[in-house]
Simulated assay, not measured.
Amino acid sequence: MNRTLYYNYIDEKLHALALRIDTNGKLNMLHLHMHSESFYLHFLNLLYGYMLENLNKSLQNVEAIDLIDYKNKIIIQVSATSTKSKVESALSKDIIEKFPSFKFMFLSISKAASSLRKTNFKNPHGISFSPASDILDLRSILDEILQKQVVAQKEVYELIKDELGNEIDVVKLDSNLAMIINILAKEKWNDDCHEEPAHKFEIDRKILHNQLEKAKCLIEEYSLYHVKVDSKFAEFDSMGSNKSRSVLAKIKREYIKAKDFRSPDDVFFAVIDVLKDKIIESANYSQIPIDELELCIDILVVDAFIRCKIMESPEGYKYAAS
């Protein structure tokens, strides 16, 4: 797996855990919350280099504090509730007085906490606490992971795979992306369906504008299938509203998520890799040999490149509409 795939796997698993915490029934909430505390203890230790341990092991039913790092002097409350009153309630507990030299942190494990980071809180015991940096949520954690090198991301990936891989596998769902691949897989992609696209100069201009070197030959070869792909999209749209639009939107979304990764060529091929995983994971994907799957994805992504869905377009660019 590459850096993009590690990040996307981590993103999906953490969001799946957050969704379970957010929607779980009351009978299962306590068990799930305790599991989340244990998971985030090891997760934060790996991600930030902390030495956290569960305070409940030494002090039973402690209010306001779930995790503690004696060496780095950090105490953390882990909560599925992300409100001002929840944070202030923790800050007001008497046990906070026992850790005057520690820093207090708040981890929201299911809700976004961006608004909390801009809030002023009552802090009656005067413990060190800066909301802007000491309130964590899924978004801030993912931003931290995004900055990591691939070796560090792989370590996080391995931890999450071990902890959550079998615990919260996402149910496979149908996808329009897999459906269009099923359609493309039935076609013959040979010289008989080659057709010079309109505005070929524009495609060359976009390749040059994005400084694509490795992807250049792929785009030049598969752009000759653009007219045929366009006809397949027309066939696809006859099956229902927004079919092709949703596929192109999905490709664009994955491109936007991958834009921060290395060179333009790396971004281009990262989109292909992610789409391959998404298609294979779809319930309605009709399995074909991997090389045939990769051919269909390459053709689809090149088509998306021509249609301005991935990579930056030069000023005045006119895509090769059929």
Rank of each mutant, 00 (worst) to 15 (best):
N190K: 15
Q149R: 00
E163Q: 12
E195R: 02
M179H: 07
F102K: 09
K259L: 08
Y222N: 04
A234M: 14
E315A: 10
L30W: 03
L44Q: 03
L300G: 05
L27W: 01
F43L: 06
E202A: 07
H125P: 10
R262N: 14
D204A: 07
D94C: 07
Y225F: 14
N8P: 08
T81F: 07
D303P: 07
E37M: 08
I68M: 04
N182W: 14
I109A: 06
K71F: 03
D137V: 10
S246P: 07
S101Q: 10
Y225R: 11
V171S: 04
L184C: 12
E53R: 06
E235N: 14
K188S: 11
Q147P: 01
S114H: 10
I219F: 02
K243R: 13
N24C: 15
P264T: 05
N176E: 08
K259I: 12
H199S: 10
N2F: 04
G165P: 01
E235R: 12
A270K: 00
D298K: 14
L59E: 10
A90W: 01
K98R: 10
E195Q: 08
F43V: 09
S231D: 10
P289M: 02
L218T: 08
K188L: 11
N54I: 13
Y255E: 07
E213R: 12
A249Y: 01
F268S: 00
N166T: 02
T119K: 09
F39H: 04
K148A: 03
N45W: 04
L19V: 13
F236T: 05
D204T: 09
P124Y: 05
S82R: 06
I207R: 01
P131Y: 00
S101F: 01
L5R: 08
G240V: 13
L67E: 02
L19Q: 08
E213L: 09
L159Y: 04
N123M: 09
R262S: 15
D137R: 06
K250W: 04
E196N: 09
S110V: 10
F236R: 06
S79G: 14
M179F: 00
F269G: 01
I207D: 00
H226L: 13
M1V: 15
A80M: 15
A215D: 03
E294D: 07
W189L: 03
Y157P: 14
K84I: 05
S244R: 08
K188N: 14
S231A: 06
D277I: 01
K103G: 05
N45L: 03
R262W: 04
V301E: 02
E196W: 01
S108A: 15
S244Q: 10
T83D: 09
Y222Q: 03
D273H: 04
S115V: 07
T23N: 10
H199L: 11
Y225H: 08
N210A: 04
N72M: 11
L55G: 02
G126N: 06
N45K: 03
L138R: 13
E155V: 05
I10V: 07
K172I: 05
V170S: 00
L47G: 03
E187S: 06
Q149L: 00
A320T: 10
Q60R: 01
F268Y: 13
I109Y: 00
D69A: 12
L142T: 11
F201E: 12
E63R: 15
C308A: 14
Y7H: 13
K250I: 08
S130Y: 00
N182C: 05
L295P: 11
F269M: 02
A178W: 02
I272Q: 06
M34Q: 06
D298A: 13
S82G: 15
H31R: 11
